[in-house]
């Protein structure tokens, strides 16, 4: 794998995470329990899609095949996506959506904090931009996890169930491969394992306030970042997200 091939894979991972989660969160538009939450989720989705344009735009530039961010978003099939399995999981109830959001925001805020000092100034610039937005996301998702976790018996039970369900998808965030090694060697991105300590500190604090127990299970589902084994859910998401560009290639307005 050449340096640019590794960098391309890394950028797809960044852009596919924000794209797929952005699309998932946008599915709540018009369906949230209260208006303020609807607006908050739509705004979060918008930030994520905006960040996708930067990450996938740079990915296309590095790849050098003339593919734009839109080409990468709408004209790849499931096996070419490099997002974490966590972000493609269905929304579930509102609590599960916010738990998934918090787990991702916690990871993303730690990762972007390191990427701000990336040796690649293009990566550093996107990270600096995105980290300002993610600071708002993580503040809100953490507050909501605490509010619902330390809420009623019903909301507490749902949040604990969401955490139990989603936790086995967290390990993938910190499992490195040869792409990560190449990025770490050149100072472009940190070794994923090095993010875990800061992530754990944040998770422990918030779950403590939320009166939720982090599961002990060590097993983790993997295959999203490498594209080797996505869940069945990604294909269904893509059929909805990519439908228009598949049916009418190049349609613009």
């Amino acid at each position: 794998m050449t340096h640019d091939e590794a960098l391309f894979q890394f950028l797809l991972r960044m852009g596919d995470n924000t794209l797929i989660l952005g699309h998932r969160v946008s599915e709540w538009c018009g369906h949230s329990p209260v208006l303020e939450e609807d607006i908050a989720l739509a705004n979060t989705a918008l930030d994520l899609i905006g960040q996708t344009q930067f990450w996938l735009g740079l990915a296309g530039e590095v790849e050098g095949q003339g593919r734009s961010a839109d080409d990468l978003a709408f004209h790849r099939d499931a096996w070419d996506f490099r997002n974490l399995l966590l972000v493609e999981l269905p929304n579930g109830d509102f609590g599960q959506t916010l738990m998934r959001q918090f787990l991702f925001d916690a990871y993303q805020s730690v990762l972007l904090g390191r990427l701000i000092s990336s040796s690649d100034e293009r990566v550093a610039a996107i990270a600096a931009k995105a980290s300002k937005e993610v600071a708002y996301h993580v503040e809100r998702s953490a507050d909501t996890v605490v509010g619902l976790g330390d809420g009623t018996e019903e909301s507490h039970a749902r949040m604990q169930a969401a955490l139990d369900y989603l936790w086995p998808y967290v390990g993938e965030m910190f499992t490195g491969d040869e792409v990560d090694a190449a990025m770490a060697d050149t100072g472009i991105a940190p070794d994923p394992a090095s993010l875990q300590e800061d992530f754990n500190v944040l998770i422990s604090r918030v779950m403590g306030e939320a009166t939720l127990s982090v599961p002990n299970a060590k097993y983790s589902h993997k295959g999203g970042r490498s594209g080797v084994m996505h869940t069945e859910h990604l294909g269904h998401l893509l059929t909805s997200m990519q439908w228009l560009q598949r049916a009418y290639p190049g349609a613009a307005w």
Binding site: E36, E37, I39, A40, N43, T44, L46, D47, Y136, R140
Partner: peptide, 13 residues
């Protein structure tokens, strides 16, 4: 504060 998010990305309610 009602919400960290508002009618546009740059505003809170």
């Amino acid at each position: 504060r009602v919400s960290q998010f508002g009618s546009t990305p740059c505003k809170a309610s």
